[in-house]
Design a protein around this nucleic acid. Structure first.
Lengths: 104, 104
DNA sequence: CGTCTAATTAGAGATTTTTCTAATTATCGT
DNA sequence: ACGATAATTAGAAAAATCTCTAATTAGACG
């Protein structure tokens, strides 16, 4: 899981909404696309970004493609974000140096 | 807290590293900038993005500016990401319709 | 095979992001 | 006031992102 790809994927509202919808179960590309005011090719690009990030997987059934949320990657991503944001841990105070030998 | 700004802020490796460093306590702009292979003005831009997102705050002490992690916003952001990624909840199965009256 | 549906890839334009150098602002100390 | 230090703003170039329309691929079915 590449955290950079995952966070870039999460940095667009449409892609976040897609993930939210897929939490209720797999859905076809077309059904997903119907929820947003952009063209289908644009949605394809967003699906591709999510797929690249590993957050979703595609499954073809006949002519229809169903996207599934990859729960494992979603959980890994969440852990990673916890690691970055600190998950509520407290740390030591300022190391302020007021006098002459000032810090950078 | 605007989740879009926060996630965009998190979508750059340098900005994530800055947050990580600030978890150990406030640091000056210059001290932070010293850790990355980019110019100081570039770092200023990154600080501005983090500040816009509310993830850090600035405090001037003489000629030096100290950045602090905004723990509250960091925690809110984490909650928001949990909401998006689902925080490990399980949901119902596929609603696959194989026959004629196919879904979109 | 021809045609219809579902979705993607191709190509291009507009906007945003990232980064740089140069100039400016703000503060301190003499 | 002057000069040094810390950091930002200004302006511009390069790269990435987002979106569109048109064309293509893939499969189903009569």
């Amino acid at each position: 899981m590449k955290i950079n790809q995952v966070l870039k994927a999460l940095s667009h509202p449409i892609r976040r909404e897609v993930i939210a919808k897929l939490r209720d179960g797999p859905q076809s590309a077309g059904a997903l696309a119907a929820n947003f005011g952009v063209s289908k090719p644009t949605m394809s690009t967003h699906f591709a970004a999510l797929k690249e990030a590993g957050l979703i997987t595609a499954e073809r059934d006949g002519v229809t493609i169903y996207y599934h949320l990859n729960v494992t990657v979603a959980e890994e991503a969440l852990s990673a974000v916890m690691g970055i944001l600190g998950a509520g841990e407290k740390k030591r105070g300022v190391t302020k140096t007021k006098g002459k030998g000032a810090p950078a």
